[in-house]
Computed example of a mutant assay.
Amino acid sequence: MSDDKTDENKAARPAEERNLEAAKAEAGTGSGVEQPAPEQSPENVPAPTGEVRSVGVRHGMFGTSGTGDTSGYGGLVSATVFPAPSQKPYGGWFDEVAGALEARLEATELTAAIESVVVHRGEITFHVRREDLPFVAQMLRDDEALRFEFCSGVSGVHYPEDTGRELHAVYHLTSMTHNRRIRVEVTAPDSDPHLPSLVSIYPTLDWHERETYDMFGLVFDGHPALTRVLMPDDWPGHPQRKDYPLGGIPVEYKGGSIPPPDQRRSYN
């Protein structure tokens, strides 16, 4: 009788609780299943990233300066840091991609094309010299061990205090053959914001390069028609740069006038 009641009580308990208890009994521990993740899943091993590299300090919530602070976050101070280059082994298929890319570069005596490799938060980024970008992109697309056939876009980033590397272009590549995603990052100085266009290799970048040029001022040499796509052709400056002034136009509302953000009072 007691055994029947015990079985009935067990069946009435939630399935998650029963499964957890069974796992504890099997593993011989009271803390749940023991998962030696590094041994069972090498891809879960994070690569050593070392120290971060600081490229300045940001004040306030949005990093603007010279305008009225109406956000209330003007007192915030945060460091802008980059993760340092990672060391091998990177873990999992990261090593396969890096190894295949390095092998092709060594065969063409362009080992210096990859400036560094960063593994951060489970993602891998290859930092490439801008003059070697088209060659590296061609290899990433065509090599049988790589096959990154699709580039979903290029994004611009502006770090005014990263001297000599103020403008960054980040490419997001996908291998549909191997189901992998990587990033390729290139930098250019503010005084020479030129990068080679990749439209001939990844045609999807046609309008992405135009938008990055429009918003950040990165000039993609070789683009078939590099024009603005969001701002008027005669618009001064590039609105998504960190040093672009926060401004606007007066707005009329029911007989009243709302000044642009840079003319509103600031809050202390």
Rank of each mutant, 00 (worst) to 15 (best):
D233H: 15
G50Y: 00
K88P: 07
G32E: 01
G28A: 10
F150D: 04
E16T: 14
A225T: 12
P236I: 15
P193D: 12
A103E: 12
H168S: 04
P36S: 14
R228W: 14
E185I: 04
A103P: 03
L20R: 06
E109C: 02
A103N: 02
M139F: 01
V81C: 09
R129G: 04
R165K: 11
R58N: 10
V45G: 05
L105Q: 07
G217R: 06
I201A: 08
E149V: 09
T204A: 03
F135I: 07
V77S: 06
A37V: 14
A103C: 00
R181A: 03
D3M: 07
L140F: 09
V55L: 05
D3R: 13
P203S: 06
G237K: 14
Q138P: 06
D162F: 06
F62V: 14
P239Q: 11
N9F: 15
H223A: 10
R264V: 06
E166C: 00
V81T: 06
L20P: 09
H172S: 01
S116P: 02
R129D: 01
N44S: 11
P85I: 03
I124E: 03
R181V: 03
T125V: 05
P83M: 01
P46H: 14
E106I: 09
L226R: 13
E8A: 15
G247T: 15
T227R: 13
F82S: 11
L230K: 13
E17I: 13
P259D: 14
Y267H: 07
D243G: 01
A37R: 03
M176W: 12
L230S: 12
G222F: 11
V154K: 07
L76Y: 12
T6C: 00
G32D: 08
H120K: 00
G217L: 14
A84Q: 02
E8M: 13
S175D: 03
A113L: 06
P89V: 06
R241F: 13
V157A: 09
T227F: 07
G74E: 10
E21M: 15
T177F: 06
T227L: 11
A107H: 08
E96I: 03
D142P: 02
P232Q: 15
R121L: 12
T70G: 05
G74W: 08
H120R: 09
